[in-house]
Design a protein around this nucleic acid. Structure first.
Lengths: 241, 241
DNA sequence: CGGGGCATTGAGTTGAGTCAACAACCGTGG
DNA sequence: CCACGGTTGTTGACTCAACTCAATGCCCCG
């Protein structure tokens, strides 16, 4: 059997029973594909299902009234990009595909059923939303209190860690399909300033782009600069049964 | 029987059974008091219980390596200030009392028991953490993309709504026990700039402080300026059984 | 080979920060 | 009852990180 991204993610936090794995396979059976730049979930829409990203990268974003955009999360395979819509229903943000994406659509009524019959899975899903919350808090502290260089360094460290956890990063480089404008909207910067900051990073021998790939030249220095501590990602936190 | 803040909050989202209310009363029975400025939960500590705020106001904050502080949430009675520690265990932020606070300490093993036996309560607690996540995203978008004036206006609108929901705000004023420095640390500003911005708000006839109370002079204008839409607080979202 | 995104760079502007002084307020203790 | 010291709020002067506008270069794809 082919490995399932969500099962893989959850098993990092504790073993699943065969029954639980079956349930996950069942509720994620309906797969949909999207072109790059397609809107996967529309801002403001009321959802009846949640979306699990299986392949590709996506962003969570809002458009402000003055035309500005803000990106509140970057997503990769294994991420349940709008799990919270199970309980919150109305999307306060939209989700857009960056690269070509394959997703599974999970009906909320299936999640409701799971939450009634599988307490451990419920806690595990809750846990996933909490990790995302912790990540948002990290971003908030960064945008509020750190320089552009530190923020970008932190973001790269975070992506490096998260991608590594799902087997999508080499030791010193990974696919980074975002434009400078997208990085800017994620970190509350202008695209011009992201550009200058990347130049500085290159000059300092920290990291540089090579096509759509980020090459990390000096990971320890990058982490030091960013004050990066991967604890908030809770990558190997074990959950109680 | 005296009303219970958590039961009151949860009943806004759907009725509870007598059994569920009893359980909530039981698990929140252990009450502790704190002086103003006391540390309720230490940053970096590993928790074995979660904290429900019963009376007073508190903040969630981190200290960065360079001595800066960042505040990621403001809390009021009825808030489960570190519910996420039930699953994440290690506190990425500390929680500090602003005014005198009364809290209930809820052992994680009780929450675990609840999550096994009361699926609806589990979803309700999960929901509370999701609303907090949505609030953090709002702050993130604000800090990243809005001016100091807009951010403060938004914060005041948010507090006004949330306090009103727990019966702690008048129509046009409410207790605001935070210092300008605390507001600054919450919004990624300097305390000097908060001061100047409050002056501007006063001059524009939007709002002003009177002692430790914020007087809102023109709520519609304040909301318009902030682009405030209370939907993200999900104050009257109903939950399915 | 031509056009549409992106990335890059320069020039000039500005919102917010820093530093520093001072004023107002408040609780405490003599 | 008032003098004192600590905390918070207020204001001015100066600085700077990041923004905006605008031009140009680059590269991929049809």
């Amino acid at each position: 059997l082919v490995s399932h991204p969500l099962i893989a993610v959850l098993e990092k936090h504790g073993p699943l029973t065969e029954e639980e794995k079956d349930v996950i396979r069942q509720i994620t059976a309906r797969v949909v594909c999207f072109e790059p730049k397609a809107e996967i979930v529309a801002e403001g829409s009321v959802q009846l299902e949640s979306t699990l990203l299986l392949e590709g990268m996506a962003i969570r974003h809002v458009h402000l009234e003055d035309g500005d955009r803000h990106i509140s999360a970057l997503h990769m395979p294994g991420d349940f990009v709008d799990l919270f819509s199970f309980l919150l229903k109305k999307m306060d943000h939209g989700v857009g595909a960056i690269t070509a994406c394959k997703v599974a659509r999970v009906p909320h009524k299936d999640l409701l059923e799971v939450s009634r019959r599988f307490p451990y899975l419920t806690r595990a899903f809750w846990f996933l939303t909490l990790v995302e919350g912790a990540t948002t808090r990290q971003w908030l502290a960064g945008v509020g209190r750190k320089s552009a260089l530190e923020r970008l360094a932190h973001l790269f460290c975070e992506l490096h860690c998260r991608l590594q956890a799902v087997g999508l990063s080499e030791r010193t480089s990974f696919e980074l399909p975002f434009t400078q404008e997208e990085l800017a909207d994620a970190q509350g910067l202008s695209s011009v300033h992201v550009n200058r900051t990347m130049k500085e990073m290159r000059a300092d021998g920290l990291a540089r782009m090579e096509g759509k790939r980020l090459i990390i030249e000096d990971l320890p220095a990058l982490r030091r600069l960013a004050e990066f501590n991967p604890a908030y990602l809770h990558l190997d936190q074990q959950l109680e049964r």
